[in-house]
Design a protein around this nucleic acid. Structure first.
Lengths: 335, 335
DNA sequence: AATACTCAGCGAAACGATTAGCTGGAATAT
DNA sequence: ATATTCCAGCTAATCGTTTCGCTGAGTATT
């Protein structure tokens, strides 16, 4: 690989001049510039980004750390983030913490070593898991989807309580009273808020959830499947379920079909944060959706801003509002 | 950020010693080593990967360039690749060429500038699109899924002809004779081979495909939807379709449901390279599958080997064999 | 004509790590 | 006692680029 020195020697100028030409950072006479350019062309020279980054103290890399790459929701996040990140002139390094705090820890130290300029993080640990980091030691970070009880970080999240309320109210409107839930882990604010929203909505109508109708999942298909199987083979099973995310809703569907139950005839299902069940397949989930692309764009806007302007601006917490999307996974209660 | 010099000064040793400690590259007496380690800890020092990479002439980065991040097939590839890559000690930089040769070109030049150590590439252009690259200028590259007519590159692909043959034979066995296809673009070997395999299988049984029953898609849901709509509203529509990939099969499903047609009662569908339709949703696609994880692992094995041993070993072309997975998207022909 | 400015381009330091080659002292061999 | 070997650690060069500060020639100002 040709270096800037090769170009300088060949064009009989200094490396400073070559640098000025490729960066347009100082005036170079047309004649010299042309000579330099032609040598660059002849040698097939391309400046080493590695050396540049080293010198400039940045990497043009943004890390995206998601909780579960096998979850279509995060796949879509990767898709959206890649587009935005490259539009900002960065490249996207993708990591999968697989919902494991320890893995996440390793990833974060790797991210730091790589010198990523910023991190978009879906945190998987609970509040205590994160040491307070001094900013001089960690690259700018924006939390996505889940938040930690910190007031000094940028976050982009969903109004989870409202999402659960929307979903639950819809079930209540259909006449359901025995409403259960496959909930998310409660060490995450996402799990707590979605559950709280559901309870909220029910008690606002004087309905009380039965504790045994509320089971905890881990956001994944497999566990939701087994938990739902357990829950639904009981004789006093709920007539409707609020499932805390889309992937788990698929697990529930599978459990239903294994148990010979039909959706929506036997059980109504609503979920949040859906894998928009690809058109044509039945049943289509009724779900709350949030504007993933806008959320991602906003998160990266905050991140890039932070990268470029440091800590001058106070942290922001942007909350997006979900909306209910009707499918055909719910029916009126029949009791 | 603390540097190696800060550590050296604080521990009253030379930077060489610090380097020896963190890399275990030379003997350091227990006393000194302990002193250095404690200073490292106190300062929260982590070696700058950027400087390291610069010095060592590598980046510990592997680029993954896929054709369409919105396609669940490639999402799964990202998932599998991330796991393997990080197990090898690299990090994964993800790019989306979005099936656009021009975008791919920009991406590749970016990859080169970033100094990625290797590239796993799903090529989107036709053969002519790729200049012959001299290896000294390009990082090691493994082609994935699609091949180019080159004998000097590592490739990991599927036996596409066989996949199409499997799928088509299944339809023929069910008695279908009016078999159509939503095919893939023919500038890709994937498209050509899958179509050829289908024609093969049919003519082996003395059946001829009607040209108007064969339409070209672009691997995406949307286009498959419109093309299928067109095709299926004709009065002499086919009784079965071979769809060249999973995402397009979903588009076809949507078209069916829009047209009031049922699958499999009215139209049977088989596809290749499926988005394994999440359990519980109906109908489950009948499809040929290929071992994505093994393929990905193999591709990265080749790549890492190439990175570590250069061009000493001749290029390898690994071809995987698909298998037929039965769902319930096919029914016997009724004519 | 002397002084001050401008300008194009150059020289060399710096970024943070690795590493070849060196050094001075202790241990061992003769 | 002298020579040899070995050891632990250090010095300094190096990777490819950017950039600060300088220079010497040309131009403008008085």
């Amino acid at each position: 690989m040709a270096t800037i020195k090769d170009v300088a020697r060949e064009a009989e100028v200094s490396t400073a001049t070559v640098s000025a030409v490729i960066n347009d950072s100082a005036y170079v006479s047309p004649a010299l510039r042309a000579r330099v350019l032609s040598v660059i062309d002849a040698l097939g020279y391309a400046p080493s980004q590695v050396a540049r980054n080293f010198k400039r103290g940045r990497s043009q890399l943004i890390a995206l750390v998601v909780a579960d790459l096998a979850n279509p929701f995060y796949s879509r996040l990767v898709w959206a983030a890649e587009a935005d990140v490259s539009a900002w002139g960065y490249s996207l390094v993708v990591f999968n913490s697989d919902e494991k705090p320890d893995t996440e820890k390793q990833i974060l130290s790797r991210v730091r070593m790589l010198g990523c300029d910023g991190v978009l993080l879906v945190p998987v640990g609970d509040e205590e898991h994160y040491p307070v980091r001094d900013t001089r030691r960690w690259p700018p970070t924006v939390l996505y989807g889940r938040s930690l009880n910190r007031d000094n970080m940028d976050t982009v999240t969903l109004d989870n309580r409202e999402a659960a309320r929307l979903a639950t109210n819809y079930l209540l409107d259909l006449g359901h009273r025995r409403i259960g839930s496959i909930a998310a882990p409660t060490h995450l604010n996402t799990g707590r808020d979605r559950l709280a929203g559901m309870i909220d909505a029910m008690s606002a109508r004087g309905v009380t959830a039965r504790p045994e109708h509320i089971r905890s999942g881990d956001f994944r298909e497999q566990m939701a499947y087994s938990v739902a199987r357990e829950l639904l083979k009981e004789s006093d099973r709920p007539s409707a379920l609020y499932v805390a995310n889309g992937l788990m809703a698929l697990g529930v569907m599978r459990a239903l079909s294994d148990l010979g139950l039909r959706c929506p005839e036997d059980i109504s299902i609503v979920s949040t944060d859906t894998v928009s069940g690809p058109g044509g397949l039945r049943p289509q989930l009724t779900r709350t959706e949030h504007p993933l692309e806008e959320m991602t764009y906003e998160a990266l806007r905050l991140l890039v801003d932070r990268i470029q302007h440091g800590n001058s601006r106070p942290p922001r917490n942007v909350v997006f509002t979900p909306s209910l999307v009707l499918g055909d996974s719910c029916a009126p209660a029949t009791e």
